[in-house]
């Protein structure tokens, strides 16, 4: 069993199919919706945590892709210019998900992208504007 977060972008015409139901039924994947923005007739974006057998998750992602859903691992959608970071800690103040923390050893910023819930609070909180997330 593995657990992985994906960002899904739905095309306008995909609203009529119960895609997540298929993931559960056909691929035995436990899904956890962490964030959703749906604009009927336009587009939809989901942050989904998939839990299941590795091969099933791969099949599930393939299934979504075949139905015109763009499905990318969360960490590929998070851009952080680490080399410019000054380790001030401002982003950790707003990161209630615990993805951004200060190392107690050397007080450098640690970013565990797998914990990110795409609240996007770090984007304006970083005084150097080093974060970008492609959710939509």
């Amino acid at each position: 069993m593995i657990k992985k977060r994906y960002i899904l972008n739905f095309p306008p015409q995909s609203g009529d199919k119960p895609l997540s139901y298929q993931l559960v039924r056909d691929y035995d994947i436990r899904i956890n919706i962490l964030k959703a923005e749906v604009y009927p007739g336009k587009r939809g974006s989901l942050l989904l945590e998939l839990q299941g057998k590795k091969e099933n998750i791969e099949k599930g992602v393939k299934y979504l892709t075949e139905h015109q859903v763009i499905c990318e691992p969360l960490d590929k959608r998070i851009h952080f210019q680490e080399e410019k970071c000054i380790d001030c800690g401002n982003c950790t103040a707003v990161c209630f998900a615990g993805a951004l923390t200060m190392s107690k050893k050397n007080w450098k910023l640690e970013f565990d992208k797998s914990k990110c819930v795409v609240c996007e609070l770090c984007i304006p909180a970083c005084p150097l504007h080093l974060f970008e997330i492609d959710f939509r």
């Binding site: 000054i86 380790d87 001030c88 800690g89 401002n90 950790t92 103040a93 209630f96 200060m102 050397n106 007080w107 450098k108």
Partner: peptide, 13 residues
Amino acid sequence: VRTAPVSSLAKAR
């Protein structure tokens, strides 16, 4: 209450 620094201890060191 969770705390966070806003000045860089790493750089100060």
